[in-house]
């Protein structure tokens, strides 16, 4: 007999909470992204657990979409971080060129 679904659900809830806490308290953007991933993983775990208890494939299919979304989000999020860095460095470059004359 497998362990009851509740155990996994609580695990997922705690994972979600840890992720949310990290997202709210950490200051580094990259780590906040990681916290988002934690939260989405908690969601996936919940989906899979419910999928098992309900004997329904829908939950597993949903996990699929959550993963796609996670990937898309990370792509764009990291793009934004890169953009911020680029702009910072360009501003410093601009200052330098101004100094040059």
């Amino acid at each position: 007999m497998n362990v009851p679904a509740a155990w996994y659900l609580v695990l997922a809830a705690v994972l979600f909470g840890i992720g949310a806490y990290g997202l709210l308290t950490r200051r580094s953007a990259l780590i906040m992204f990681m916290c988002l991933e934690l939260m989405l993983n908690a969601v996936n775990l919940t989906f899979v657990t419910f999928s098992r208890t309900l004997s329904d494939i829908g939950g597993q299919a949903s996990v699929f979409f959550v993963m796609v979304v996670a990937a898309a989000e990370v792509t764009v999020g990291l793009g934004i971080v890169v953009a911020i860095f680029r702009r910072r460095s360009t501003t410093s470059v601009d200052e330098l060129s101004e100094m040059k004359g």
Partner: peptide, 24 residues
């Protein structure tokens, strides 16, 4: 955009968690 992204991501995660639970 970064700020929007982070909070939007939080919202999305909360939403899909809600969906997961509704599904359950």
């Amino acid at each position: 955009a970064l700020k929007y992204f982070l909070l939007g991501g939080l919202a999305a995660a909360i939403f899909i968690y809600g969906v997961a639970i509704l599904y359950g």
